[in-house]
Simulated scan of single mutants.
Amino acid sequence: MRKYLLLLITFFIFQFSSDAQLKASKLIDNALIKAKEESKYVFVNYRVESCELSKKLEHQMTNETCKPLYNTSYIVVDIVLTEEKAKTYFGSRNDMAETNSKVKGFPFWYILDNDGNFIEMSYDANGNNIGYPTTKKKVDEFIKIVGKTSKLTKSKLNILANTLHEQNNEQLLSGK
């Protein structure tokens, strides 16, 4: 079921641009080859260049503290959509801004095993898009997924959680 949902979402994202779809497909295919060689999973992140939450997730995954942690378990593929592509998908800038806090928006990500099988997606148990986790509950769900699909220890997962909480201006978990 999840695989078909993902294919449907990917189709809508790239419905008007076969070049973009081919480019994304090639990036993912190359990542799968590298992931197989390194016994890792592939973390595919779709984001919109003008979306603040997309920028926050990119920053969290690429900052000097977190990037090495993600890189121990994942080959990260960052697929960036232009604002124009996002407008095609969402209809208007207002819709796009609203989607940042709604169920099915950007960023959207999924995790593949190194054979290309879907392991996890950015949806919680209720079908809500975690995307960039902006609440403690979403951070906990994000960390649960990363913990399940990575080689990270509990203390390293706490580092990831703490950086998310810092970006969200929340109290740090490590203080408990």
Rank of each mutant, 00 (worst) to 15 (best):
T88K: 11
T88F: 12
D78T: 01
K136I: 09
F118V: 12
D115I: 00
T99G: 15
K85Q: 15
L152A: 01
E64Y: 00
E83T: 15
Y70I: 01
K102V: 01
V103R: 11
K137Y: 05
A97R: 09
F90G: 03
I145H: 03
T82E: 05
V80M: 15
K137S: 06
G91W: 09
Y123R: 03
F90I: 01
V146Y: 07
D124Y: 05
T62V: 09
E141F: 06
C51D: 15
G147E: 04
K67P: 01
T134E: 02
K56I: 06
G131C: 01
Y70V: 00
T62S: 15
W109H: 10
K55V: 03
K85P: 11
I111C: 04
K67Y: 07
I130Y: 04
K102G: 10
D140W: 10
A86R: 10
S155W: 00
I119N: 00
V77F: 01
M61Y: 07
L57H: 11
T65Q: 13
K136H: 06
Q60P: 00
N126Q: 15
D78H: 11
N63G: 10
F90H: 11
E52M: 13
D115G: 02
K67D: 05
G105K: 00
D78A: 10
G131L: 04
E83D: 14
S150E: 07
E52W: 14
T99V: 02
Q60T: 11
A125M: 02
S73Y: 03
I75Q: 08
D113T: 04
D140Q: 08
N100S: 13
S155N: 07
K156T: 02
T62R: 13
L152N: 01
I159D: 00
N126S: 15
I79G: 07
Y74I: 04
M96G: 10
T135L: 09
T88I: 12
I159V: 11
K55D: 14
I75W: 03
T149F: 09
N129L: 05
T82N: 08
V103Q: 11
K67Q: 13
Y74C: 01
Y132I: 03
E84S: 14
I111H: 03
E64F: 07
M61Q: 14
K137A: 12
G116S: 06
T153G: 10
N100H: 01
S150M: 02
L112F: 05
